[in-house]
């Protein structure tokens, strides 16, 4: 057995405003109601599978003010959105939505101009963020998602052609199965009315968000 030195967090370096930052974000409103009962962690299938995610722990970290640790962790990106923690929580803390809020903050802070304050997204975070982004772009492009385009671009993104295709190898059996069952849509969905209106909504929403943040 190897004994490792326990890495402790120095509370003097805590960012005491972090909890308020999360509460101000959409979905984080109920954060401060948590009384640390751990129901969320016990019901979480991802914790169960032995991954890093521990909802109760993350909430505590946020409350204590471990800003950098939380935002750079891979745990916040491991949640699969199953709403089990949200449902079982006796205090209606809605952890699934808190995790979404944390992810949003992390993405925003990863683009922070000030180098010392910039957050470095973990690898899991980059992947998930990239996927969300491609999904959202696909909706913007067609008015609804077109899977081959979305998945293709997701695999290629940041990798370039040969590597993107290699990354796709892991999904070869899945794609082959779909192909054999005629489940791949070869032509893009074409509904110009839906597409135009969806783009208008995106544009306006973006403007509004900028107004709020400014």
């Amino acid at each position: 057995m190897i004994f490792m030195a326990i890495q402790t967090f120095n509370l003097n370096t805590a960012d005491l405003n972090f909890k308020n930052e999360v509460v101000a974000e959409e979905g984080g409103e109920h954060l401060k109601k948590c009384f640390q009962c751990s129901s969320c962690t016990l019901t979480c299938p991802v914790s169960d599978a032995g991954l890093d995610l521990n909802p109760r722990n993350i909430i505590r970290q946020v409350l204590v003010g471990m800003r950098k640790e939380v935002l750079e962790s891979k745990a916040i990106w491991q949640g699969v959105g199953g709403y089990e923690c949200t449902d079982r929580c006796p205090q209606n803390v809605r952890f699934t939505e808190i995790v979404e809020a944390l992810r949003r903050i992390a993405v925003r802070e990863s683009k922070n101009k000030d180098k010392n304050k910039r957050i470095r997204l973990s690898k899991e975070g980059k992947l998930k963020h990239s996927f969300d982004k491609r999904f959202s772009e696909s909706v913007w492009l067609w008015g609804r998602t077109w899977e081959p385009e979305m998945i293709g671009r997701y695999l290629m993104y940041g990798r370039g052609l040969p590597f993107g295709a290699l990354a796709g190898f892991r999904y070869v059996s899945m794609m082959l199965g779909m192909f054999l069952k005629f489940k791949i849509e070869f032509f893009p969905p074409w509904n110009s009315k839906a597409r135009r209106e969806v783009r208008a909504i995106y544009k306006k929403a973006k403007k509004k968000e900028q107004e709020i943040n400014a």
């Binding site: 959409e26 992810r103 969300d132 982004k133 959202s136």
Partner: peptide, 11 residues
């Protein structure tokens, strides 16, 4: 789904 909401909740 959940993906658009992750980036732009209002849209």
């Amino acid at each position: 789904a959940l993906e658009v909401q992750a980036g732009n909740p209002l849209a």
